[in-house]
Computed example of a mutant assay.
Amino acid sequence: MDKDDKDEKPPVKTATFGATMKAVFWSFFGVRKRRDYEHDAANLNPIHVIVGGLIGVALFIGILVVVVRMVVAKS
């Protein structure tokens, strides 16, 4: 076994887009364990986080618009 073999770290596995969406979903509620946060910070792709955040915001705004239209229509 070479000396260089000991210094090599295993490749870091990046999270899937689904795992990123799950992390973004829980971050909207502000509920995240420190262990999960550290795992996400090490494995999430920043582009996936941005896209997931934009999707989450669009869904949130869409839900608010639907709720407001339902309330206004009943008035």
Rank of each mutant, 00 (worst) to 15 (best):
M70D: 10
G18K: 00
V57E: 11
D2V: 08
A41D: 08
M1V: 05
V66Q: 06
E8V: 14
H39T: 14
D40E: 06
V49S: 04
F60W: 13
V49Q: 04
V65F: 06
G53Q: 08
T16S: 15
E38Q: 13
V67L: 12
V65M: 05
K13V: 15
R69E: 09
A42T: 03
R35Y: 07
S75Y: 13
H39R: 14
K13L: 10
G18L: 01
A73L: 01
M70K: 15
L64W: 07
E38H: 07
K9L: 12
V49F: 11
F29P: 00
F25T: 14
I47M: 06
W26E: 13
I50S: 07
K3M: 08
L64M: 14
V12R: 09
S27K: 13
N43M: 06
V71C: 11
I61L: 15
A73R: 04
D7H: 03
S75T: 10
A23W: 03
V65D: 02
I47T: 13
I55E: 11
D4T: 14
A15Q: 09
G52C: 05
R34A: 07
A58M: 11
P46I: 01
R35L: 08
V72D: 10
F60G: 11
T20R: 00
V24I: 14
D36N: 10
D36P: 00
I55A: 12
M1G: 15
V68E: 05
G53D: 03
N45G: 01
R34H: 06
G30C: 03
A73F: 02
G62H: 07
G30R: 04
I47V: 11
K22W: 08
R69L: 15
V24Y: 07
A19F: 00
A58W: 09
N45V: 06
E8G: 01
A23F: 09
D40K: 00
T16C: 02
R32L: 13
E38R: 11
F28V: 10
I55F: 14
P46K: 03
K22P: 00
S75N: 12
V67T: 15
